[in-house]
Design a protein around this nucleic acid. Structure first.
Lengths: 354, 354
DNA sequence: GGTCAGCACTCAGTAGAATGGAGTGCCAAC
DNA sequence: GTTGGCACTCCATTCTACTGAGTGCTGACC
């Protein structure tokens, strides 16, 4: 309701939008300590933290205020404090600076991308593994959509009497295929005719720009093949065919929680590609880079936080990388890792696209 | 050491190769009960089991004998018995008949394969989900190797000045690609020449039968492209490119164990595709359909059992499906599910191959 | 000889009481 | 506003006692 610009002096007890310097330091201390130990943090421990040079009694008073304002919680009366989702949120938004990846990780990333080559899917798969290794989180990588990539090759391969395969190669190196059921027997020649026609009318365009107006080839049977071919092309361009999800390091979820039930429900979510992809897109759409606890709305992941990072190819956001961990995950590390890997991955993908 | 053919009468106390009828019934009772409850089974409970109509005292005596012979174990003195790996082994080998899938599952399988269509990878992925659903195990599907499939299409697509993509379509509908680094700039025309040459010399053959003897095209630069193209083709034919692994239902592992550590180590293994593929192949090579506990030699999976089933395409064993669960998994169910799904999958794959 | 009822025994699991200690809130003094 | 001191709370641990499921054994029975 009321907003005060008196953030220097604090008065945080009434203003939930700002915390004075010391309270910030205390919150930082509690969060970092709890991230490391997973144990409630007492005022005694906070005393040792940098930026806090007051007695435990004073810290206690501040912690009580932080609890009143919803940044901290107490599992029970005589325990230390643990951060609430709101506490993590404030920490992420205001207290954690632009951290850099540790040298070892930096080296790992460099090495990875120096040696990365070949198939895009394999690279994305391995990227998820890299991210998981770097962060001890579960990593999710959504392959870049091929919206902007143009068609480099279109091919119809007959597989059976009424079965053909449409194979397209995109300018970004992606190969997509779509099986085509033909309503009647089509001989190789007619298939080739149709393919030639498709090539002539689609090569160089993006999948989303395939011409839907059919020009007749003169032969009705060939036209029919062309028609299903065009349908297949457009299907490939649609969203469902594009989003490939790669999940790496799901075992880290078992290390993050000690309740096996939590692990199970989280893994169940991870198996649902659609849910994961939607979750990542949602968070990104809301302009967030971190969604904590219930913020992302996926109920079984209430004890998890998600870090997302867009992957830009030639300045255009297409792919996404995500990190899933417990709410007490190491946010600075995760953000740093996601950032650098996302950037490098984007560069890499831009390179191989002309 | 000594073998007795007196299996009718038993004498199982000295002969570890056979158990008399009642001991078999008792072992069956303990195994099935323990599979269901995960609790040690006492003589009182066994009394209710079918095929056992003696007093608990007699059962106790038999159970003591079964323990002496290594089929059962006691967690502690005053507890019931749980099966050992050897006990499960005997159960699987001699006591469990050819079980059928329950009607609901049968219906699920039928429905699945009636609606399965399109991309082979997607189908295999979904098959792993189906199997996991059916059995409450983690399902592993290794895609059929393309050793026997013949080349239907070979294509070279230029992606950049020194980057091309080799795309092949196999007769079984698989599409494989391999990026090719060209040592020097190659124009489209020369790429097309090389592609034509590759087509002429490889179409209709299996990947493993690619002619390695190079016939020159007359142009050294084109020859160079052909050469790397042939290398790429042979790489595709090699094992590493072929084995695709699809894992479904890994969340079931979290439900199977109550120690989160066990879950973590099992998940870690599942993330290592090579280990899993090797494991399945190993077990299959040894002629087993079930590997229990330490039998498969993968130490972190000591508390797991693996059910494997070959997938035959046109009578030739190519793919594999596997089920991973705790040693106290429901073997009859798992075997039945693996069998029927494996058979249907094989049929399906045979259909789409000409 | 195999089977069985009876009995003493074992021992995990549970519940209750005592203890220790980490941590808090409050207050008076600085 | 900060701090040391103090009383208080309550989780976690330990110990004890107890329960009960389950066993092994023995002597009797068929």
């Amino acid at each position: 309701m009321q907003t005060s610009d008196d953030s220097r002096h604090g008065g945080a007890g009434h203003n939930p939008l700002a915390l004075d310097v010391r309270k910030s330091a205390i919150l930082t201390a509690v969060v970092t300590e709890y991230i490391g130990s997973a144990q409630p943090v007492g005022s005694q421990h906070v005393m040792d933290a940098p930026g806090v040079s007051v007695s435990s009694a004073t810290i206690r008073a501040d912690m009580a205020a932080l609890e009143r304002d919803g940044y901290l919680a107490q599992p029970h009366t005589s325990a230390g404090r643990i951060p609430t989702d709101k506490g993590y949120r404030f920490f992420v938004d205001h207290l954690v600076g632009p951290a850099a990846l540790d040298p070892v990780g930096r080296q790992q990333v460099r090495q990875f991308f120096d040696h990365a080559h070949g198939e895009i899917e394999l690279m994305l798969e391995k990227t998820s593994g890299l991210l998981a290794d770097l962060t001890d989180c579960t990593a999710m990588v959504v392959g870049p959509s091929h919206e902007l990539a143009t068609l480099r090759s279109v091919q119809l391969v007959g597989l059976g009497p009424r079965l053909a395969l449409l194979v397209v190669v995109l300018s970004d190196g992606a190969v997509q295929k779509q099986s085509i059921d033909l309503s009647e027997d089509v001989d190789e020649g007619r298939l080739a005719d149709a393919a030639r026609y498709l090539v002539a009318h689609s090569l160089g365009r993006a999948l989303s720009q395939i011409d839907t107006t059919l020009v007749t080839t003169g032969d009705p049977a060939t036209d029919a093949v062309v028609s299903v071919g065009v349908d297949a092309l457009r299907h490939l361009g649609s969203a469902e065919a594009g989003d490939q999800l790669f999940v790496g390091g799901s075992s880290h979820m078992a290390a993050a929680f000690d309740a096996v039930d939590t692990v199970r429900s989280v893994l169940t979510i991870l198996e649902q590609q659609l849910v994961v992809v939607t979750l990542l897109r949602d968070v990104l759409d809301r302009g967030l880079s971190v969604a904590i606890g219930t913020e992302h709305g996926v109920e079984p992941l209430a004890s998890c936080a998600v870090v997302v990072m867009p992957v830009s190819v030639d300045g255009e956001v297409t792919g996404t990388i995500g990190l899933l961990g417990p709410t007490r995950m190491n946010y600075p590390q995760a953000l740093a890792a996601a950032q650098v890997v996302g950037k490098r991955l984007g560069q890499r993908l831009s390179e191989s696209r002309r």
